[in-house]
Design a protein around this nucleic acid. Structure first.
Lengths: 339, 339
DNA sequence: AAATGTTACCAAAACGTTTTGGGGAGTTAT
DNA sequence: ATAACTCCCCAAAACGTTTTGGTAACATTT
């Protein structure tokens, strides 16, 4: 593979001049020479070596998407899939490259995000999948590198966040049930450690309190975002109380809504005639169940898109706004009935 | 961020010795010195710079997963998702790192895979998503770098393939319909350029011919793997022939099976009472429809796992077997009826 | 006692770029 | 005619590693 030296020899120019021919920002090179160099490069099949570039220019703006998951469990789910889709649609639109790394819990124990950046010569980091319990999240605050988190609130001079306004969104979801005359609502909670669980909890409480509706403890089901756990807890609830205690199930995720519907149906009840169910997230599953689930679309694809956009903005000019709320939308389908 | 020089100064050793302390393969360094260096590194927060390493050691074995998609269409689908899951479960198991790049059609026009490797200092490439029409696929044959393709047959000294035995698998799928007394089968074809379409076509033909069953042209529906296209073509077919011409639809993908089922139901027929439907791939959707789809699981997760494994094997010893067929399995569910 | 081997380290070159500090040739202003 | 400026280009240092060739110190063999 030819190097820049070969190209310099081939064109009869110096190495430095050839380098400048490739970097648009330099003006002290004649247009003619530049096109000559580029043509010659194509001719001999030269293209610059990324590692050498990274090494020589400390400030190359290459970006990486980092997804850190717990040791247990699958690395990738539809949410990450959608975020990545959005992110890559941005990079493709603007012709930039982005490496993606999937790291497990082991990583967290050994390395900081900071060090990861140095090792891989990245100056912009996209973080997804980190929880509140991440010990390194604190380091982000005075991180020398720019980073953007998705669905995680993290403050700092050089850190941006792309978020859903979960409090408002879940307030609206709750209101949708209330507006349909549901007064006795069962709330299916997400993972207790997650930021989003707290925010959605707050949204539900706001709506409930505003309407003077109680939420007794036995109507709060901790299901950790999991389908099976929701199935189990809802089945138990139904076995214990039948139709006496509630008319609607409000879930903090679609996956739990799927478990809820299955449980209701397996107990011999009908959705939405006997019980209404609301999901949250707007994933594909919510469209494939019978009945289709009424849910809130978090617009993950746009989140991914905006995250890269924000990252690039921050890389250029760190006075950009640091928090972006992407709009959510209520999708009314068939799992909620007016009573 | 401290460099190796800082660490050398800190420990009172030379740069070269420090470097060797990190690379296990060197023996001419005392065990004591090695642990001292590693401890000191932790103390001052040093970790080696990847770019410098790549530059200095031509033969670093870092690997990348490359997914190249057409300009149009989504970058990521569940298949890629599963392959990535498998791939990352391997890398995590063995504690290695793998970068993932998603590139669009533009890339194909400008660059070769070869050049990509050089630019990014990768010596092992995992290729996914390239079609038969890829102009660069030919270059793979005398590629200086090791690469492994998933779901694409490509020969070469240094290229491995991870595949499903599509001919056999689709033969078996066809036989399942035949064994259930279906004689008039409609075949929904995939993208004409794709290798897999050809292989599955051959499998169907084998089974059909063996049983002296005809497959007239009007029962072959080119649907390009797409749900909507399948919906349209099947609707048209049903409008034209009703129940006279066929009892079963054999789809080359689950996505087309979803469209087929929807079309059948929207035309007022029942699955599987009026028509049977077979899918292929074993994706999540096949489990969420009503009725659940009988399909062939391609085991994409294991494909991803095996691909990285094969890549590593080839990187160590290129005399390994170059083609790996991962086992598929028929999943019998509710969309096929015995008649 | 000299020759040989072994161990544990060092100094310096190399990898392929970018960037800095010049500097010659030509043009314009004094 | 000299000075000042502009336009292009060059030479060399720098980036942070790995790797090569060498050697001082000590142990072992003859």
């Amino acid at each position: 593979m030819p190097t820049i030296k070969d190209l310099a020899k081939f064109t009869g120019l110096s190495v430095g001049t050839v380098s400048r021919a490739f970097n648009e920002r330099y003006t002290d090179i004649s247009a003619e020479t530049r096109v000559n160099v580029l043509r010659a490069a194509r001719e001999i099949g030269y293209s610059p070596n990324k590692s050498a570039q990274n090494l020589a220019s400390k400030s190359l703006k290459n970006i990486a998407l980092l997804s850190v998951r717990d040791d247990k469990g699958s690395y990738i789910d539809e949410i990450l899939l959608r975020i990545m889709t959005g992110a890559f649609s941005y990079t493709s639109e603007f012709g930039i490259e982005m490496a993606t790394y999937m790291l497990d819990g082991l990583f967290r124990k050994k390395k900081t995000y900071d060090r990861f950046c140095v090792e891989h010569s990245v100056s912009g980091l996209l973080l997804f999948g980190i929880g509140l319990d991440d010990p390194h999240i604190k380091c982000l605050v005075n991180h020398p590198h720019i980073c953007v988190t998705v669905d995680v609130e993290a403050d700092g001079e050089r850190v941006g966040n792309v978020l859903t306004d979960d409090v408002t969104a879940f307030d609206e979801a709750t209101m949708f049930l209330i507006d349909n005359n549901h007064k006795n609502i069962v709330l299916l909670m997400g993972h207790p450690g997650a930021t989003v669980t707290g925010a959605r909890w707050k949204g539900a409480q706001n709506a409930l309190k505003r309407n003077n509706l109680p939420l007794p403890v036995h109507r709060i089901l901790g299901c950790d975002f999991k389908t099976e756990e929701a199935y189990r807890k809802v089945t138990a609830f139904l076995k214990m109380y039948g139709k006496t205690e509630a008319t609607a199930f409000l879930c903090m995720s679609d996956s739990m809504a799927v478990g809820t519907i299955r449980a209701i149906q397996d107990c011999g009840y009908n959705v939405p005639d006997d019980f209404s169910v609301m999901g949250y997230d707007g994933l594909t599953v919510s469209e494939l169940t019978t009945p289709k689930i009424t849910t809130t679309d978090q617009n993950f694809i746009q989140k991914g898109y905006m995250a890269v956009k924000l990252l690039r903005g921050l890389l250029e000019d760190s006075s950009e706004p640091h928090k972006i709320y992407v709009p959510h939308s209520l999708i009314v389908r068939d799992s909620v009935r007016r009573i």
